[in-house]
Design a binder for these strands. Structure first.
Lengths: 204, 204
DNA sequence: TGTACATCAGTGAACGCGCGTTCACTGATGTAC
DNA sequence: TGTACATCAGTGAACGCGCGTTCACTGATGTAC
């Protein structure tokens, strides 16, 4: 049985996406080429065009999966306690862990040049869902500590920016004195954010 | 007088950098090519190699200038009061303003793929200086409100991440419900960060 | 159960493009005498 | 002041590369009769 000799691949679409994911982590978002993907999957250069209209569609498909995985990673709470505080900490840490473990994918997802959300409905929707997960866990935490429940747009932006910024800086190695255990820093930073919110809530 | 016909350009190095800056904001970091720069400056394709060893050196030179400008922008404090709190707010807002006004340059400066800091001594040094400006204004602010003066690595990372993350999300248009006046959000977010620190300081 | 046929995933060659970089060269400049 | 010459910024052609995409095609598949 030589599956690589078959005329019809079987599930080329899935194979291309799988290969694209691998290339993404190997060479980064810029390193992906349809020709390269086709070669990896042992298929002619034009074969991918039976499943995708163009390169942008492939990139969008990958980014879509990326947002699903990001959601999974955020919801994989560390502890098991249904404590809103721990839950929010888990979401924040999950966000950063996802970025560190899938740097290429993360960069792709958050690069306007590479994937323009607005043009692809499904992608836009999934990115919104990822954001909703983050926002809801923030709101639940606020509620738990007795503070004005739906976070203001400003607080939302501050919380999201903190996690996203730290992920970005760690990824691009732009943090002065880069930590040898990045996730330790991630936990420390999210922990400090939570403490700041808590102490400010006690005043209100 | 036809300066474009001269055999020797005069100051090709500066002209290339200037042209690169323009291309950066027009097409983004990926859109820059040495050939394109040469063409813009009306010079042969190989001419740039009299001033730069390769493309990486051009990118590094631009990024270097970028960090200098970032420092200027951070130090262009809004008010005139030598108030450490206002100063820190100005630094944070300056950081985000710089990113919004020079998106291509900002992305280049913080992209590990495009410019590897570690390999270029001068660049590394200037990026460190930019970070120092930020850290010092944070420390001054902490001092002013009577809190443990040199910020812990965790607090440094949180502060830097907040500003950087917000800049990045605004730049890549990844903030849900993108604000029509981004700098208003920038001021609100930095303002909230400062308030959180102040209220937590009152407890200690 | 057997055969004609429509479908469409995959082929292979080609189009046209832009890129970084090298190399032998040329011509302007300014310095030493 | 005038001239020989070293220097080196800039030329132009070429090398070799990888890319996205198109197009007429072929061969496997499965359905209708």
């Amino acid at each position: 049985m030589k599956p690589s000799t078959r005329y019809h691949h079987g599930d080329l679409r899935a194979a291309i996406i799988r290969s694209a994911m691998a290339a993404l982590e190997r060479d980064g978002p810029e390193g992906i080429s349809l020709r390269g993907l086709a070669e990896t999957v042992n298929v002619s250069r034009s074969a991918p065009y039976s499943h995708f209209r163009n390169k942008r569609e492939v990139m969008a498909a990958i980014a879509e999966i990326g947002f699903d995985r990001l959601i999974d990673e955020m919801q994989r709470v560390d502890g098991d306690a249904p404590d809103a505080r721990l839950c929010f900490l888990g979401v924040g840490a999950g966000y950063i862990r996802f970025a560190l473990e899938n740097p290429g994918l993360f960069k792709l997802m958050f690069s306007a040049d590479l994937v323009s959300l607005r043009s692809v409905g499904d992608l836009d929707q999934r990115s919104a869902r990822a954001y909703a997960v983050f926002r809801q866990s923030l709101d639940a935490f606020l509620l738990e500590i007795g503070r004005a429940a739906p976070a203001s747009p400003t607080l939302q932006a501050l919380a999201w920016s903190s996690v996203h910024g730290l992920a970005m800086l760690l990824l691009e190695d732009r943090l002065p004195g880069p930590p040898e255990r990045p996730m330790d820093l991630a936990h420390a930073v999210t922990g400090m954010f939570v403490e700041l919110i808590e102490s400010s809530a006690q005043r209100a």
